[in-house]
């Protein structure tokens, strides 16, 4: 048997990281749109911003369960979240949408099709997110791979303000190693699968940047109410 590798996290067995991340994966949240309010772009954007804010709270709680993340300094935890938060939001929408065709599951009770995207003025953004859905659908990404690549996206979010670069590098190595070991155990038929999954990150980064830009312009217009955490992270970008 290949020599079991241990990690600097006290000898966590490689598949242990995947199972910890599966357990840490938060449940979906609900939009609970008000049926008495007539549909409009403002209503749709208000729902999306409210969902984003609540999902951000969930994602911050999730990040604290990534093996190795709590070992980082608080300042570095904040830096990674300030730079990677939109990628995490987008990835969760993408994963929820894998089972559908040309629709985005922003929440179990808030699924956007092309018409609704046009009405909300987010057609371009949603089409960009749908590109990611198509990419992951084509490679039949599994939940185990999804939870690891989401943690990698956060650890690899290229913040300009990291204080302990070596500690962040160790976190990236742990997560990268977990993905590689998962693939070598589960997908012997495709020795390049781990690389293929990591090669989706540039498109994720680009799509998240488009989302940030779009919501920053909405924020500038001042017509859509946004909660403090979402506003604060938009400004951090």
């Amino acid at each position: 048997l290949p020599q079991k590798r241990t990690f600097p996290l006290g000898g966590l067995v490689e598949n242990k990281v995947v199972s910890l991340l599966l357990v840490a994966e938060p449940e979906s949240i609900f939009a609970m749109p008000d049926p008495t309010v007539p549909d409009s772009d403002i209503k749709a954007l208000t729902i999306l911003c409210d969902l984003a804010d609540r999902e951000l709270v969930v994602n911050i709680g999730w990040a604290k369960h990534i093996p190795g993340f709590p070992s980082l300094s608080l300042a570095d935890q904040m830096s990674l979240l300030q730079s990677g938060w939109m990628e995490i939001l987008v990835l969760r929408v993408v994963f929820r949408s894998l089972a559908l065709e040309d629709k985005l599951v922003y929440a179990e009770d808030y699924i956007m099709d092309e018409e609704q995207s046009k009405l909300a003025g987010v057609l371009d953004l949603n089409n960009a997110i749908l590109q990611l859905v198509k990419k992951y659908k084509a490679m039949r990404i599994e939940k185990e791979e999804f939870v690891v690549v989401k943690a990698i996206a956060l650890a690899n979010s290229d913040s300009m303000q990291i204080e302990d670069v070596e500690a962040v590098q160790r976190l990236q190595d742990v997560l990268h190693g977990a993905l590689q070991d998962y693939e070598s155990a589960q997908h012997t038929e495709d020795p390049r699968r781990a690389g293929k999954i990591i090669m989706t990150l540039p498109l994720l980064r680009q799509t998240a940047a488009r989302a940030v830009q779009h919501f920053c312009s909405i924020k500038q217009e001042g017509r859509v109410p946004m909660h403090k955490l979402f506003l604060e992270l938009l400004e951090a970008k």
């Binding site: 969930v58 709680g61 300042a75 904040m78 955490l229 604060e232 400004e235 951090a236």
Partner: peptide, 28 residues
């Protein structure tokens, strides 16, 4: 300017810090 001025100024993120330091049951 002195070296620390050349460091990127970290943006205040009180909300992020609040949730990052909250215990899980508060988050949930």
């Amino acid at each position: 300017g002195c070296p620390q001025q050349s460091r990127l100024v970290r943006r205040p993120c009180t909300e992020l810090l609040k949730y990052l330091t909250a215990t899980d049951d508060i988050l949930l």
